[in-house]
Amino acid sequence: MNTGVKTYDENEKPQFSETTMAEVKRVIGLFPEGKQKSALIRILHIAEEEFGGWLSVPTMNYVAEILNIQPIEVYEVATFYTMFNIDKPGKVVLEVCRTGPCMLVGSDNIIEHIENKLNVKVGETTADGMFTLKTAECLGACGYGPMLQCGKTYHEHLTTEKVDELLDTLRKEHSTSSNS
């Protein structure tokens, strides 16, 4: 479980782009009249993607408004599910699976290697705001471990060399893109 709602920026006024709003409406339409709250989790994923990888209080209030539910109903859900970030993470979030089957094939070494390489501990973000290192519980890739998830992508059969390569690629990809 996440720990709680912390950050609040009154000046931030989130607004989905037109295409995203169309997608949000499609998702709401998957449920019967009056059951629009069922779309909440999907919309929170969409909101994270649109608004810099996390859910600020204004973002959550905005989602509540769209679904015509109370803000507290959104906070409750956003703090229950581990995938949602209540604090702003780095540009790139690395989630290394730490559960049994991955541990049997060396996830401990992978986590340690990334910690050393990036000079952070699990849960921390690098000083340049580029990487946040997290651990995750079994991600359904146990036969292809060690593995880590980055965004929607699974990186499997990891070795320390592959991790180094991946970090380089990610750094290049994201140092040019702006941090929204």
């Binding site: 998957l30 989790i41 999907r42 994923h45 409750e76 859900v77 599910y81 581990t82 995938m83 079994c138």
Partner: peptide
Amino acid sequence: CPGGGAYICGEETALIESLEGK
């Protein structure tokens, strides 16, 4: 429909709660 990262939502009544947006 996606969940949000919670093993417990595999339990059938938790799954239903989650599908109701809770």
